[in-house]
Amino acid sequence: MTLLECKNLSKQYGRYPALSNINLQIDGGHIIGLLGPNGSGKTTFIKLIAGLLTPSSGEIYLKEEPIGIESKKMISYLPDHTYLNDWMKVKEIIGFFADFYEDFETERAYDMLAKLNIDPNSKLKTLSKGTKEKVQLILVMSRKADLYLLDEPIAGVDPAARDYILNTIISNYDENASILISTHLISDIENILDEVIFIQNGQIHMQTSVDDIRENENKSIDTLFREVFKC
């Protein structure tokens, strides 16, 4: 089943082309890595799907509907920077999300907070950078969405918590939902991916199954990435 489809998708910032002519399909039930060097267009691509940017040309469909209000209900998006109000307490933000999103599961959020030893009564500004990231990821993963867009989700998180978070991702997402993860920490997440999209200079370099890469090239995704994007 096709969950997301992009047709001739392009985005320009002034004269600068950030994405050119992207054509791709993402099916339900997959965890996909969106991998590419800095400035290759990953965040632009994710923001277009999230509906925060509008395409310069081309179309994006989620479940055959164009991106819009309805698609935002089905997409859970983790941006690459903090957007939450610093003065709020964790539990207040959870209340905020529960109010805002019909598919938010409060119990699940509290459960994950407890597992990661985060006090719901602490104010966001008192938390470390890594802990803030964990809170944001918990918020995003506590929704029952069809598509999760995670832009650099684990960069500031310690390795032990990373393992827990990856496990949460594996065991919590619905079998028909898909997760698109953009990251540079390839070796940490490559075992949970089933597909990768390599993006370079705003174009799709390839989209393929990770086990095909391992089988055909006898290489890890991390190694292949280093070869393809060698500086």
């Binding site: 039930g29 965890i31 393992d163 990856l166 496990n167 594996i170 065991s171 075992n191 949970i192």
Partner: peptide, 17 residues
């Protein structure tokens, strides 16, 4: 499948396969 996938830290689709 889910339990095994979580235990092995791999994608459930891979475990299924």
């Amino acid at each position: 499948v889910r339990e095994l996938a979580a235990e092995a830290s791999v994608n459930p689709n891979t475990m299924q396969k």
